[in-house]
Design a protein around this nucleic acid. Sequence first.
DNA 1: CGAAGGCTTGACCGCTATCAAAGCACGTGG
DNA 2: CCACGTGCTTTGATAGCGGTCAAGCCTTCG
Lengths: 249, 249
Amino acid sequence: MLQANNIHHLREVTSVALLGPEPNCLQALFRKQPVEHFAAGQTLFFEGDIAKHLFEVVEGSLRIFKIISDGRRVITGFLHGGDIVGVSLKSHYLYSAEAIVDTRIRRFSRKAFEAEVASCPELRPEVFARLCDEMAAAQDQMVLLSRKSAEERVCTFLLKQMPCEPGERGYNAVVDLPMTRLDIADYLGLTIETVSRTMTKLAQKGIVCPAGRHAVRIMKYGLLVQLSGDGEYFGDERGQIAYAGANRH
Amino acid sequence: MLQANNIHHLREVTSVALLGPEPNCLQALFRKQPVEHFAAGQTLFFEGDIAKHLFEVVEGSLRIFKIISDGRRVITGFLHGGDIVGVSLKSHYLYSAEAIVDTRIRRFSRKAFEAEVASCPELRPEVFARLCDEMAAAQDQMVLLSRKSAEERVCTFLLKQMPCEPGERGYNAVVDLPMTRLDIADYLGLTIETVSRTMTKLAQKGIVCPAGRHAVRIMKYGLLVQLSGDGEYFGDERGQIAYAGANRH
DNA sequence: CGAAGGCTTGACCGCTATCAAAGCACGTGG
DNA sequence: CCACGTGCTTTGATAGCGGTCAAGCCTTCG
């Protein structure tokens, strides 16, 4: 899975922004393919299946997950419009993929994709860059799952789901959450109850404001960053945030 | 004195034996480079540094880690002889790397590496394969950190550290653990106390047998697989089981 | 309007973290 | 060779975060 948008890596966002108009970019390959429709809940492929295709999400959202022995589910990522699934695959899918909401995708044969990349050197940097972004996201997720508290996880998650145009950041940005609480829980390594309680707590503190079941408004961006456990590197010149005293319980 | 790591030495010899005859493999690139020595505890590079080099571990072990805000450390991986650090890097290192024991490495400029890969198409499948393996390992780690109990984590870890020649598996394989308990804890998302207690419990059950501070003998491989939470799920009591199909990727 | 599924809230419990101290291995120097 | 110090590991006691179980509420849809 690949997420084109990651607010934690501004350098990369910049390069992604350049991809749209570029004629020789990965998305251009998909543009010729017909658009397919998947209803909410429908499965694109299962973990372990032979990896015949790559997919580009045109519109909508996917969840990427693994199931272990006694039914426990781990969501390793969410994909949205512009993301491409399957660049990091060899012979078999490493995970299953389902549509969260009604979703339109384009599909590309893996064999043809490899041929295109082999014959078209300009594509290789982008393939490589997407793999690296995917790797960086996986490592951030390991940090989250390994050492962050429930509150830090939820705050990190909300920040990651924010629209990432710089102008949109800061106060009153509305974050869309198409997935269910169970999806969020399985992504953050928590239970639905803990996700729910943490959201409530953030709302009570006035940091976020619930806007329907599948969206929240960010009221205090700076506090959210603080509580996410990510933003406190000393000597780093990111002047936009005024840090008040963090209350650690 | 640093322990003579027989197992890791074997590991290196084996992989070299397999890859050695291959003229166009990644390790062949490194072979021309001089061998450097890093003492136990020494740092190869820091997270955030400009990524000037890739490294091949010739002999010894490295830990790869990130530090977050208030000093919490997350070890995202251990590397041993034959492994290559930095294939998934763009401009900056995503993590820091330190030698766990006295370690010999070879270094290769990233620029030269990219040039070699660009000019030598036979290398690309191996680069790609290593990236995919790294990605698969990261996903398995996410599953571990997200949903596994302390016992499952430790069992999974021990299995992963086992020498992987099929003949060596099963009873009485000795697993070398050059890293400290703190390293293991920071890798598994636990504390040293929990790691220690879990090891003791496994020893009391007769599943493993401590062999000095930095090694354990695997006494009941099948049970270890069962307890790792990865293999098939058996509700009934089957005791020691055959381990067919335990690892599939 | 009622059923169903998702979400929130509450009570309680257990796993693992935390705090603390004792045990061990190993190197150093007398 | 032994005494001693240091750092790592083990073991024990306690506490707290988040999981589990159980209602109750809200939204959607037939």
